[in-house]
Simulated scan of single mutants.
Amino acid sequence: MDIPTQIKQHSCMDCLSGQSLGFEIKMAFQPIIDWQQQEIFAYEALVRGAEGQGAGWVFERINDDNKYYFDQSCRVKAIETAARLGCDTLLSINFMPNAIYNPDTCIRATIEAATLYQFDLEKIIFEVIEGEQIVSQNKLKRIFESYARHGFRTAIDDFGAGFASLDWLHSLRPDILKLDMSLIRNIHQEPASQQRLAEIQRACATLGVVILAEGIETVEERDFLVNAGVRYLQGYLFAKPALEQLLTVEQIQGWA
């Protein structure tokens, strides 16, 4: 596919301006907990409007004409903001597979931003954005392989809720698998969810994939997951996403 001239000319500074989107974006950060080490494992960068409007408000303004630039802008804004805030953990960035026409070409602005803001490329996790309709498993596999060559980690988001299945897990072999909140909700009371978790854990253990449970809202959910051997946790029990702020361990609830 030919690369449009205006895309060739984009740099990470262009992405920061947001002018091609017609509106400004900011980033909120939600901590991901390493329960075993009792520390912050990573922060997930989540897009917001200039005044903190939610992701829904932002995505209402995204279409086929601007989704490529939006995807690039989110990556650059996440890296710039995290670096400015002094992020020294892993940084998880959502991406839109259908906005990527060539993985190696589309990663250019990300590498440029990481270099400019002195953010370690090996600290970046790219996860498939929730709700994104995947057209081709092979395309996503090529994207994951390209990102791995550049030193990035990869993650499948919302596993069990949408396109992803154990077949996809074996094909894509991400570094991290994020369990959908529909599986997590009241898991301490749902034998079917518990059985599903055990199946996923067995598959991930075989493939060397790390499991991360997101959407945790209660102590009971947290305790069941911890006792089941899930090490990495994320959800409102610990903290909601904070606009342009990296919450510290002291500011995070849900430890006790």
Rank of each mutant, 00 (worst) to 15 (best):
Y101W: 14
E112F: 08
G86N: 06
A78G: 01
N94E: 05
E112T: 04
S92Q: 06
L91T: 00
R75G: 04
N102W: 02
S92V: 03
D88N: 13
P97G: 10
T110S: 13
Y101F: 14
N94W: 10
V76Y: 09
F119C: 01
A78W: 05
A114F: 12
P97H: 08
T115G: 10
D120P: 10
A78M: 02
S92K: 05
F95V: 02
M96S: 06
L85M: 14
D104A: 15
T115Q: 15
R75T: 01
T115L: 12
D88S: 15
R84Y: 12
C87Q: 00
F119K: 01
Y101D: 07
I93F: 12
D88C: 13
T81W: 04
N98I: 07
A83V: 09
P103K: 04
I93H: 03
L91R: 01
T81H: 04
L116E: 05
R108A: 15
L116G: 03
T115H: 14
I79S: 07
I111H: 08
E80L: 06
A109T: 13
T105W: 03
F95C: 01
Y117P: 10
K77E: 06
M96N: 10
I107F: 14
I107H: 10
L85G: 11
A114I: 09
T81C: 10
I79W: 09
R108C: 11
N102V: 04
T81A: 09
T115D: 15
F95I: 00
D104H: 15
L85I: 14
L116V: 06
V76G: 05
I79T: 04
D88H: 12
R108I: 05
M96W: 08
K77A: 09
I111Q: 11
T81I: 02
N102D: 15
P97T: 01
R108Y: 13
I93G: 04
A78L: 02
D88K: 13
D120K: 12
T110G: 07
K77N: 13
Y101M: 13
A99I: 03
V76M: 05
A83F: 07
F95E: 00
A109P: 03
I93C: 08
S92L: 12
F95W: 06
A113F: 13
C74T: 02
Q118G: 07
V76E: 05
C87S: 07
A109L: 15
L85R: 03
P103L: 11
I79A: 07
L90C: 04
A113G: 10
N94F: 11
E80M: 13
T89Y: 15
A99W: 08
T89L: 09
E80P: 01
S92D: 09
A78D: 00
E80A: 15
K77Y: 01
Y101E: 11
N94R: 06
D104P: 03
T105E: 06
F119Y: 15
D104G: 07
V76C: 11
F119M: 05
I111C: 13
E80C: 14
D104M: 13
I93T: 02
